[in-house]
Design a protein around this nucleic acid. Structure first.
Lengths: 123, 123
DNA sequence: TGCTTATATTAGCTGTAGCTGATATGATGA
DNA sequence: TCATCATATCAGCTACAGCTAATATAAGCA
């Protein structure tokens, strides 16, 4: 199941956001409570979404007594980030021309930028 | 309809890839042919996917005689890129810790993040 | 004019994702 | 040992995404 498909669901997207909020682990109930309030869905529904996230590498669980502590795993997100790679040129080429220095955070020491593009396609 | 949902479908994902391949415009039939071969679906199916992409800002069309020339529009992709923003720390901090010096080519001495949580939950 | 080519639209079918209610599992405290 | 949390699982329902076959639209060509 592709990462995009997983995040296609707004509930799962929100769960990932909640899991990534703050550092470290979040008990299922904590996240679940928020989701149930925000989306008006039942506890099993949330649990099923958590399962999908688990089974697809978006989260890992650890048992702590009766609780299940969830941690977000960013690997699939990074995968999306990589898929996005080739398309960045579409909005980067504008930035390049206009204000690459500003975008970088004024860290330009000198302005040598002799080779701004590694591959110049002449297509 | 959220960008993730659009790209959740493998056919649409592939269409976006094909549209972004090379520079500029692609006739519907060209893309459609590839898709039909790769996925074994009908022409209307492709056309419907193209419609979804159109209506959600992933592509624009121009009529050229009997042809429809499609161009990818990266705006929704950029939106995803932005959504991804907060999660980059997960794979960037590893880079930071491990080989930021290698990557940057010089030694960057970072102060340890003394305030990890900006907002304490008082809700 | 009519045939063909390129593409879109429509109507209708079907599989399945996501939901709920009920229930299982297992830790916890009295 | 039992009642009670915390969470997961299961069975079954339903809406809808994506498909196809048929057809519409419109341009190109003889």
């Amino acid at each position: 199941m592709h990462a995009f498909e997983i995040l296609g669901d707004p509930v799962r997207r929100r769960i990932v956001e909640l899991l990534a909020d703050g550092e470290g682990e979040h008990p299922a109930g904590e996240v679940g409570g928020v989701i149930q309030r925000e989306f008006g869905i039942s506890q099993p529904a949330v649990s099923q979404h958590l399962r999908v996230l688990r089974e697809n590498g978006f989260a890992t669980v650890r048992k702590a007594g009766a609780r299940r502590l969830y941690t977000v795993d960013a690997a699939p997100l990074q995968q999306i980030d990589q898929w996005l790679g080739p398309y960045r040129r579409f909005w980067n080429q504008r930035l390049d021309a206009l204000d690459v220095e500003v975008a970088r955070g004024k860290r330009a020491r000198r302005a040598p930028s002799s080779t701004p593009d590694t591959e110049s396609d002449t297509a």
